[in-house]
């Protein structure tokens, strides 16, 4: 791998860029209960990412896929997810009714293919420590995103598109690096 920094960026982008903050429009509502639940489940999702990352070696062995090849697949997914975020950002979720729905919503926002695959790729190639740092950083930023009040929708959407573009760039860089690996 060309360096753990690229992977870290990829994790960051993948984990929190594609709609977590943007989609969390319900925080503007007076009821703080869903918000608290969302932050809690965001932390749980971050731990899940860490756990998934730690399972990288046996999982890739079961899949019969080498680490470099897996990284190429993960990069493609990050790039495509980035393109989707850039061209068609997720619509803000303006209402959640209860804690359960908040939990599910956060899980579906944070545990998408891009961050999960990148967590596996980072762990398998750059090692457990880097994987843990990457996943933890992704988790923390995701939770911070969830805890924050949503900025005005235009700003939020522009941010998501920008981060989506960054996801494309990261996907291309990681993909090319993988294609240049033995």
């Amino acid at each position: 791998m060309s360096g753990w920094l690229g992977s870290l960026i990829a994790m960051l982008v993948a984990a929190n860029a594609f709609g977590v903050a943007h989609a969390s429009a319900w925080y503007d509502r007076a009821d703080s209960t869903p918000r608290t639940a969302a932050v809690r489940s965001g932390a749980v999702c971050a731990l899940v990412l860490v756990g998934i990352g730690l399972a990288a070696a046996p999982l890739l062995s079961i899949l019969d896929v080498s680490t470099h090849t897996f990284r190429l697949g993960a990069a493609a997914v990050v790039g495509i997810s980035g393109a989707k975020a850039m061209l068609a950002p997720t619509k803000p979720i303006t209402q959640v009714h209860d804690t359960r729905e908040a939990n599910l919503t956060v899980a579906t926002l944070m545990l998408t293919p891009a961050p999960v695959l990148m967590a596996l790729a980072v762990n398998s190639e750059a090692g457990t420590v880097t994987g843990l740092v990457a996943a933890a950083t992704a988790g923390v930023t995701g939770v911070v995103g969830l805890a924050s009040r949503r900025p005005p929708e235009r700003v939020s959407e522009a941010l998501v598109r920008l981060v989506g573009a960054l996801g494309i760039v990261v996907g291309v860089i990681v993909g090319l690096d993988s294609a240049r690996s033995v």
Binding site: L63, D64, V65, S66, T69, L72, G73, A76, V77
Partner: peptide, 10 residues
Amino acid sequence: LRVSLLAPEV
């Protein structure tokens, strides 16, 4: 992915 980039390496 399984039929393209992540097909099993045999």
